[in-house]
Write a protein that binds this DNA or RNA. Sequence first.
DNA 1: AAGGAACCGGAGATCACTCCTCCGGTTTCC
DNA 2: GGAAACCGGAGGAGTGATCTCCGGTTCCTT
Lengths: 209, 209
Amino acid sequence: MPTTERPLRRDAELNRQRILAAAGELFSERGLCVTLDDVAHHAGVGVGTVYRRFPNKEVLIDALFERRMQALADVAAQARAEPDPWRAIVQFFERGCELQAHDRGLKELLASNAHGGPCLVTIRDRLRATVAELFTRAQAAGVVRADAAPADAPLIHLMLGVVMDRARDVDPELWRRYLALVLDGLRADGPALPVEPLTGEQLDVVLMR
Amino acid sequence: MPTTERPLRRDAELNRQRILAAAGELFSERGLCVTLDDVAHHAGVGVGTVYRRFPNKEVLIDALFERRMQALADVAAQARAEPDPWRAIVQFFERGCELQAHDRGLKELLASNAHGGPCLVTIRDRLRATVAELFTRAQAAGVVRADAAPADAPLIHLMLGVVMDRARDVDPELWRRYLALVLDGLRADGPALPVEPLTGEQLDVVLMR
DNA sequence: AAGGAACCGGAGATCACTCCTCCGGTTTCC
DNA sequence: GGAAACCGGAGGAGTGATCTCCGGTTCCTT
């Protein structure tokens, strides 16, 4: 390690914590669009203090969302531990959506690869791998339609994300209704799906806005 | 009629047509967020000319989208004419989504009641009534799950709208995949949906952003 | 064919944001 | 007790949309 991290002065460290706490709340409630000025005000410190500690929003987001993103990856891992392949799928989507429904920032982070540093990227990759496993297993067991694909998962999350956003104030649980609908469609072996799933690269493009 | 509409001067009328044509194209391609300045430039006239003819964007949108909205209402009406209740539902969603996929402005207009004058509102109301009929009929025939509701239609459109937006450049037909998935869920008489559908007022709120 | 009303173009004023810097004054730590 | 680190927040700079204003042009009427 090239730079020996000297500990911050006491007041500086206190403010850093305040900023992180405030940013955590604000990002959860209002999404990633909050201003660092907002964060400063909500933390009860000056704007300069925030910018001194976190040169830009990316850094702050990275610092905050690493563990939240990890929580989602954990949800997928736990689902993998569920013996029934179908229940595993259901569990993954339900728990995953719950996380997103309670944390607007996380939802936006998942909806767009645009934000987020390298740390988040690796977690995201691991998440994708686990999801692929869940799908493969469920399809091998014949409980998920054969023409579904792991690449459908992010799109489903995207779709439910709109419901969460729109209905947040009216019926914050409404997304469950449409998740149930989609899961039913995922299970049913109805008429073949009319379009191929996205490839990995396509998915990257789609999630990059 | 209190004010006798004197016809516009020839050059003025020509420019009005140019503006309408340009706005039509731009709204289709780029959505309702286009500036009246954009419209002016694209129409080859000055900004002032646009603002003189259409005091604000609302008026222009109303003038343009009346017939496009009507087209969607027509799609619903045509679906009602289809004898098979299930095919009617499928047809409505497919044709409706096709319209939206080709017209970003229309999609946004449907996704939010925020824009649009009284004219659009009445068409929207008629549309809703027709959709309700489609659902009732299909449910009576037992081809759509009993716990689905007409209020689900706009939400489904909303969800598919995201797919259209995101995947437009990558695979403009991708929405068909997820429509098929949802329709399968709508048909299947799987486990009961876990949340009540939105009421009319709730729906208004949800669509008002 | 001439005069005035109607119309044109587009520079730029206004407003509302966000991002970020700067520096006089304060706190901490050695 | 004094230097280094830190604080706050006013405000500069950049952006982007909306809409006005007015000198110059075009059209229609008589």
